[in-house]
Write a protein that binds this DNA or RNA. Sequence first.
DNA 1: CTGTTAGCGCGTTCAT
DNA 2: ATGAACGCGCTAACAG
Lengths: 340, 340
Amino acid sequence: MSKKTTIYDIAKELNITAATVSRALNNNPKISAKTKELVFETAKKMHYEQNKLALALKSGKSFNVGVIVPRIDSNFFSSVIRGIEEELYPEGYHVIICQTHDQQELEIKNINSLLNAQVDGVLMSVSNANIEKLDGFKSLLKKNVPLIFFDRKKNIKNVSTITIDDYKGAYDATKHLIDQGCKRIAHLSNNRKLEIFKNRYLGYKQAIIDSGLTFDENLVVESFSKVLEGRKQTKLFLEMDNRPDAIFSSSDFTALGAIQEITSYGLRIPEDISVVGFSNEPFTKFMELSITSVDQSPREMGRIAAQIFLEEVNNDAKVKSEKHVVLSPELKIRKSSQKF
Amino acid sequence: MSKKTTIYDIAKELNITAATVSRALNNNPKISAKTKELVFETAKKMHYEQNKLALALKSGKSFNVGVIVPRIDSNFFSSVIRGIEEELYPEGYHVIICQTHDQQELEIKNINSLLNAQVDGVLMSVSNANIEKLDGFKSLLKKNVPLIFFDRKKNIKNVSTITIDDYKGAYDATKHLIDQGCKRIAHLSNNRKLEIFKNRYLGYKQAIIDSGLTFDENLVVESFSKVLEGRKQTKLFLEMDNRPDAIFSSSDFTALGAIQEITSYGLRIPEDISVVGFSNEPFTKFMELSITSVDQSPREMGRIAAQIFLEEVNNDAKVKSEKHVVLSPELKIRKSSQKF
DNA sequence: CTGTTAGCGCGTTCAT
DNA sequence: ATGAACGCGCTAACAG
């Protein structure tokens, strides 16, 4: 292990003090141009690199931020992460990514673990499991570590959030189905204790009511965002006496499951049953039968989350204020719902 | 900022020394059971949590490892990462994920950045761009930070690797197409300066030769692993006078593009043209026309990469030895190539 | 069994 | 303009 060179090494080399070296490296105006140059030169020569750990210990800043998401293998979350990176990298931050796999236990573990790693902030989308309890966040808030929710949020005072207008996204999607002539629109929902799913449900419901159609609670079911779950629930819809003529899904994955099940029944899409998903995952565009879906501009969401973090961390902010950004979703109309 | 409590705080509380507290917390056998209990108790009472940064500075270990991948929004890489996490989390490590987006500049930046963060090791899959130069890795190797390549490797002495047998995967896939009666099999390759693509090419070629078919270099093209690239290259194949009756693609994404293009020409799959992809991305299974593909057991790959890292980091290893693990791929036969 | 001392690498007073 | 000394929080070596 070729010992890393420290400021002491280069100080010794130059017969000066480590303090002077430190100052020179940090461009302290009180250091003569000559010594500065000398220091920079020998620093390069000796392959000096600042030990961020020592700096972190000294300054209390690690320049690491934690990002907690349910999973990274969905285009939505990985795109958000990309947005976050784009914004934070140039500022010298690193991103530590944790997955909860929707398990509350892991979520809490992750938070504590990040806290121990002395992260400067946490950006997160709460897991499906962690709904009512706020315990997990107490430790964060108590230590005054900036916390920002994106997409799946909780309402906690002094905590900023960035979301999309799920209500509008769902409303527009449902309205679109109605405009295509659909009269009995089912809804594949998800855990409605999470705001995003509650709002998608409410937008869906309101669009139906506003259009003068009858709202039928039996056409709403909750399921996890998995392809097979979508199939299972859709099967139940298809076996109803009075089966729906459209399905608005709160997830692209369940929408895909719905399509598989509908097709396996020999029914046509969109003629017999139209389908709309949510998130605009890439595969929705690539299917032979492309899927109409609601785009959430995840990259933009990530960038904004990161910007909010930077504001919070830079404002020495005695007065902390919460900020709530809401992005507007965009309906991408494709074959699975376009009858004409 | 409610100051974090340190071992000094709890030492003062108990009228003992910080050192004793440290020892008690670390279960040093020389500490009396009574004081241990006392320390643990007040530690909990005062919400003490170890400052990993100080520990890292002291021990020279940050308990962070860097993982560098081209991108995280492919199931293959995100699954590898999951495997890595599963193995490393229980050992107290954190994972810092970096994406190169196949840009060499970013790759080098990431390495240096991770080095500055004092990571204990780097697990990476090299970018498509960084082919010949090894410069970027010098800094890593010089500092004696464990480096492990997975999937996309380079040959550097003392560096362990974990890959799949790409040659065999490609050979089996091509052999399968031949068994289905295909005679003119094209190959959508990728940058063959990367071993994985070179080996897939070689396996494909050998299977053709071994079967007594004629190998035609014109049926091999390189392209990036993107759907649209796949379409573009396939179009060229389709407009040949003597068009191929099968396509073996080195990527599921280009395979998908191929399918789209073939379909748009009104040709049938697999009857007119069969298609096989590589990586077993989830969508290959979910398409109405499911795609035959080669599974790379990414999660297993991640776990093994992590295990190798742990071995290296735990062996105080004067004698460093490289280890090369090769996993066996598995062909998943689906509709896109199954004629009977 | 426990206290004392020192050092990990850095930035920052307080002097000079 | 620079040096000396200290502290961030923790552990390890050396007492006793």
